[in-house]
Design a protein around this nucleic acid. Structure first.
Length: 502
RNA sequence: GGUACCAUGGCCGAGGGGCUAGGCAGAGGUCUGCAAAACCUUUUACGGCGGUUCGAAUCCGUCUGGUACCUCCA
């Protein structure tokens, strides 16, 4: 393979080593990346947007660098249980009974909603989007492998991973820093654990209770796969026994990813994942936004500006926020930091984003100077360096603001940019803002139809006549009236511009 | 209680031993009939207490506060 890779300086924070490591794919130029996707049993909310967007950036940047990336993201449509359900009821099954739908119908409904929201957020579809329900056979195969290796046991039709045995032979807790002794000392008494030899063990296969309607035949019982197995089965199937990146939310580190490491180690007899990446949570008033806390805001609520009220009867969101505002807001924080939601922060993001878009649009209108007073080439390199430093999108955005300031200064005649500079600046925006950060201009500043344009030109012409006659009362009346219906006028040297405010 | 991590100016957020982060908001100015936009200037900072160091927001200790996870929520 002689594909050219544009950098060898990409560093990524590996949760496994808790350090930034130079990214070196196992089989360059190919990169395998697996990311934990959504459980499709509820409306997609802001918490879903973060990992999707974060790993969309990783996907886009690796491709930009010249890697051939296979990005696999799962859809969990089986086997996960309600937190507060007394009898360990399958999440999908529970919802199905409530709504009188087939489980797969529920999964399909929310999967479609998820896709719709992600498309709006300009999140690229993964190379493979694998569904847990479509990989039951693969999951059963892994259970067999682990049983054969002696690291699992059958108990009353269910199969459990033997964590105690594993911890004697391997380092249990490499990812999360936990050790088995502490866990045994502090474990809580939970129902349904009598089948386990040890509370630290986790299920590989679970026999279905009578009311459990999602079930499959297996050598052990009519049941469903354990909760950490699907990711192991599907990542192994599509990316192999060793692959480069496994991503997901920080909340998945333990036990989900820790269990995956155990399963992989025994099933493949190797350390399957080279780099573990974890995105941090979106918080609201300092608390994780999640379904279990009931403090989540769905993406549709953001897009439409209609939110449910919180416990004090206060609206959670003040206005509609466009998908790109949400995306920009998320990218203004590094993926490894918590990001606190507030209306003020979102509105700040919206204004900043529009500023970049306006500067980009201005680029096409600038006339190149014969000479240049600026060194714009370093901006491109600065953006590249920021991305190479563990996908530091806030720094990239800071550099883009610098680029927009230069564009505006040139527009004001304060500095000179030659043709090459303009091309470089356009390239900076095209490459980083649009290709890598995945932003897109969503609001048309000009009219969609000729009629709108013609009417606006007529109104602007009338106002111009008023101004020439020094009839500012009429001129201001026209401008104010247009403002009221959401149209903003700007008097510039070249004439009056108009745009539609959201 | 255990494990992992966090604490930066009015708000959101980078950075991480000496070098302006950035955005939003505020103040002043340039331009304009007035606005808007843009540009220029500008105020507010690294939770408390110790320590290491010529020098700490950055390293170490400790205290306080907060978050996530602790195995059938992904």
């Amino acid at each position: 393979m002689n594909t050219e890779i544009k950098t060898n300086h990409l560093k990524i924070q590996n949760t496994l080593s808790r350090q930034k490591e130079i990214f070196q794919p196992i089989h360059s130029p190919f990169v395998g990346m697996y990311v934990c996707g959504p459980t499709v049993y509820g409306d997609p909310h802001l918490g879903h947007a973060r990992p999707a967007i974060v790993f969309d950036i990783v996907f886009r940047y690796l491709k930009f660098l010249g890697y051939k990336v296979r990005y696999v993201r799962n859809i969990t449509d089986v086997g996960h249980l309600e937190n507060d359900a007394d009898e360990g009821e399958d999440k999908i099954a529970k919802k199905a009974r409530i709504e009188q739908l087939e489980p797969m119908e529920v999964a399909q409904l929310y999967l479609d909603k998820y896709h719709f929201a992600m498309d709006k957020l300009n999140v690229l579809r993964p190379s493979i989007e694998s569904r847990a329900s479509g990989h039951i056979i693969e999951q059963i195969d892994i259970v067999k492998k682990i049983l054969d290796a002696g690291y699992a046991y059958i108990s009353n039709g269910s199969v459990y991973f033997d964590v105690i045995k594993y911890s004697k032979d391997y380092h249990y807790g490499v990812l999360s820093g936990r050790n088995v002794e502490d866990m045994l000392a502090t474990t809580r008494e939970l129902d349904g654990q009598e089948e386990k030899h040890n509370p630290a063990d986790f299920a590989l296969w679970k026999k279905a209770a009578p009311e459990h309607i999602m079930r499959w035949q297996s050598p052990w019982s009519l049941g469903f796969p354990g909760w950490h197995l699907e990711c192991t089965a599907m990542s192994n199937k599509y990316l192999g026994e060793k692959f480069d990146i496994h991503g997901g939310g920080m909340d998945l580190m333990f036990p989900h990813h820790e269990s995956e490491i155990c399963q992989n180690r025994i099933a493949n007899n190797t350390d399957t994942v080279k780099y573990w990446l974890h995105n941090n949570m979106i918080t609201i008033a300092g608390k994780k936004m999640g379904k279990s806390l009931g403090n989540f805001i769905t993406l549709d609520e953001f897009f439409n500006g209609i939110s449910h009220k919180d416990a004090e009867g206060k609206e959670l969101i003040e206005k509609a926020y466009s998908p790109m505002t949400i995306r920009f807001f998320i990218l203004q924080a590094h993926y490894s930091s918590t990001l606190d939601f507030s209306n003020e922060a979102l509105q700040a993001a919206e204004k900043g984003m529009n500023k970049l878009f306006v500067a980009y649009a201005l680029l096409d209108k600038l006339k190149p100077s014969a000479t240049s007073t600026e060194d714009v080439s370093k901006i491109y390199q600065n953006c590249l360096d920021a991305m190479d430093d563990d996908f530091n999108t806030p720094i990239v955005i800071a550099h883009l603001f610098e680029a927009s300031r230069i564009v505006n200064q040139a527009n004001d005649g304060k500095i000179q940019l030659n043709e090459a500079d303009l091309k470089t600046l356009k390239d900076v925006f095209d490459t980083f803002l649009f290709d890598i950060l995945g932003m897109k201009i969503e609001v048309q500043n000009t009219a969609s139809s000729n009629l709108d344009n013609d009417l606006m030109n007529l109104i602007i012409e009338l106002r111009k006549q008023s101004k020439l006659n020094k009839d500012y009362t009429t001129a201001d009346f026209i401008r104010d009236a247009l403002t009221k219906i959401g149209i903003q006028l700007k008097d510039t040297k070249e004439g009056t511009e108009w745009s539609i405010n959201k």
